[in-house]
Simulated assay, not measured.
Amino acid sequence: MAMRHMGGINNIVNAMHTPAALKTIVESLGFQHLDLDVTVPRVIIFRDAIVDFLGMELEARFTSRAKSGWQSILNYTGGAYIYVRREYAGRLKIIASSWATANKKAKEFEDAQEGDGDEAVEGGEADKEGGETKGEMDRGSKEDSKSAARATGTQASGEKSFQINSMIVPTTFNEMFMFNSAVMGFSNSVWMQEVLESFDDMASNVQNSYRLQEECDTLGLRLAKYRGTVNLSEFKSVMLASLRSLVPKDWNSAHEVAWTWLWENVERMLTALMGKPQVQEKAFESFIMSLSEDSRNYLRRQVFKSFFALAPAGQDYFKQSSTRLYWITDQVVAMTIEIYKDP
């Protein structure tokens, strides 16, 4: 958590001389704090803690002008967090409601299909009863009846098949997305399938910034395996076109702004990961392979030492021997390498 704070503050300080970049960074950080109740008193506590720490470390070098500057930038950042949480709450509601509407259409489609199946079963039973009654007729009449029924059935089946084919249209988000991507000329963009698989989790967890970041991290690993060009703005075009089709009655400019805002944040997180998984995979694997046995044992001990410090209740579940705990740590490392290779 301390590294998160330092990383965020470092980015803010580096962008202070560029208002547009500073606004983007602060808005992005505010988006990541949507699930936290950021209030004015809490901003003041955080601001004073940072300023007091700097004053204690720098002593006389931390002038009154420097103190005023730090207070100003931290006030701006905290105020931006509060503004984002207050103003963007409406966008979160729009995203949740419109996404629920799109998914509800899929459920209705499945229910309708089940209803058609039940009617077909009932019709089949009725035909069976009729066939048993006709079995009492003479052989010649029976053959004629079968021929007529076969001809009539073929005609009816053809008409029904034509009606079903003519009525089937994309009604789920995935189907509508695939349809629109083909129409818009993006059928060869295979990477869109990877994003599409994660998009439901993203849209459903937009209020949980950490979960959304995890989804983007995992998606970034999968996109890193793609050899072609990834143009994330293309996905946004197809996404908006699909949502407009699935939410026709409620869709308005507010929906357009909300979904565009969501995708811009997702795109920003994915762009920040571009090119990194390949480097991280090699660095991590090289680091693990370079460790001596003593270093490995130290790493194994530190993993559970840190884990128990963060989650003391975990000690109730890990009462095994050190050998067993070391084995678990080795499996975690192996799984991490495997995730990089095959996410």
Rank of each mutant, 00 (worst) to 15 (best):
K107R: 10
S145K: 14
A126H: 03
E143D: 12
E143L: 15
S157W: 09
S97I: 01
G135C: 15
A96I: 00
D138R: 10
A120W: 09
G90Q: 10
G115M: 12
Y88M: 12
D138H: 08
I82V: 05
E132I: 08
A151S: 11
T154P: 01
A100P: 04
K134L: 15
G153A: 15
K142Q: 06
K104C: 03
A80V: 14
T154R: 06
N103S: 05
S147W: 09
S161Y: 04
E108T: 11
R85E: 03
Q155N: 14
Y88A: 08
S157H: 03
S145I: 09
S147G: 08
M137A: 07
D138I: 00
S147K: 11
S97P: 01
E108M: 14
E129W: 03
K93R: 13
G115P: 13
D138Q: 06
D144L: 02
S97C: 05
K146R: 07
T152I: 09
I168H: 12
N165W: 12
G153E: 03
G123N: 04
R150N: 07
G131F: 10
S97F: 13
G90S: 03
A102C: 06
V169Q: 15
G153W: 01
K128M: 15
T152G: 07
W99L: 05
R91M: 04
R150C: 08
S161N: 12
I168M: 02
M167G: 14
K107Y: 02
E136Q: 13
E136K: 10
Y88V: 15
G140K: 11
I168E: 12
A156I: 00
E110W: 04
I168N: 01
Q155G: 00
D118T: 11
E136H: 15
E110P: 03
G135I: 08
A80C: 04
S98V: 02
A102L: 10
Q155D: 01
S166A: 15
D118Q: 14
V84Q: 09
A120Q: 09
E129N: 02
I94W: 04
F173A: 01
S166W: 14
K142N: 07
G130D: 03
F173D: 02
G131K: 10
D144H: 08
A120H: 13
G117F: 13
E110T: 10
G153P: 01
S145P: 03
A156F: 00
F109M: 14
K142T: 00
I95N: 07
G158V: 00
K160S: 05
R85Y: 03
T154S: 05
Y81Q: 15
T152N: 02
G153S: 09
T152W: 01
E122T: 05
E125Y: 02
G117V: 12
D118Y: 06
G115A: 15
E119D: 08
M167L: 11
S147N: 10
I94Q: 03
D118I: 06
A102K: 03
E129H: 05
G158T: 04
E143N: 10
